[in-house]
Amino acid sequence: MDETKTTPFGIFWHKFKKRKTAMVAGVFILLLVFTAVFAPWIAPDDPYEVDYALSMEPPSAAHLCGTDVFGRDILSRIIYGARISLAVGLTSVVIGAVVGVALGLISGFFGGFLDGLIMRTSDVLFAFPGILLAIAIVAVLGPGLINVVVAVSVFSMPTFARIVRGSTLTLKESLYVKAAKSTGASRRRIMFVHIMPGTLSGAIVYFTMRIGTSIITASSLSFLGLGAQPPTPEWGAMLAESRDYIGVADHMTLFPGIAIFLTVLFFNLFGDGLRAALDPKVK
């Protein structure tokens, strides 16, 4: 047997690299990260430079994605916008996932009072779904991207907690966990070695899908005027500016939307690949 296929990572990598779409998506994400980091060197123009003589120019050799109302180069603005979307998406999901998984595991494993407390709290958080919670927080703290990150993290937590709690409850009753118990494994060992890995595949799939959703939520808030403020080159904010020119300058609606769509799409495809590679049932 090939030695690289015996370690957990070896098995994962062997399965993951067979997923062509996920590999392509991974490469795209790396490129996107590269673009975001080196935006000042990659962007052809200054994303803030106003030139009324060039207002709403259609795509051309000089401006590949055309210009907006203020004559700013849309491609450059999209490139700078990648920084904002990636930062907001990743930060908020990492915070939400770490807290949510821990809470779900504790809740499902120990049950009783802790379970009740965590699940009732998550019921309350569920009572303020995603974008509504974000809007409430923005209403209190004022518009801005940091507040959007806070809101998106908070509303990711209960779903992570619920998913992990659900699979913890199922796994607790499974034969192999009972077997581990009967051999005298400690509670901590059962929780982290036997149960947690089984809950993670669900959490990881949700994690990658969540990055996409967070990017969409953040850009929706900017679209509604509650997140990034003009003249910030945020993709949602750019689409808000394009709204009044539908049928006049369609390229303004087209390109920022494609940027959001492709970014989220590739995160989701990457997530699908991860899921397949992490699922022990998939060969």
Binding site: M209, I216, F223, T253, I260, F261, V264, N268, D272
Partner: peptide, 23 residues
Amino acid sequence: SVSGISIPQFWLGLLLIQLFAVY
């Protein structure tokens, strides 16, 4: 389905308006 999950609602709305209402 994966496209449907990835498309932002407000953009989809704008595109649908562009195609079915304006054009």
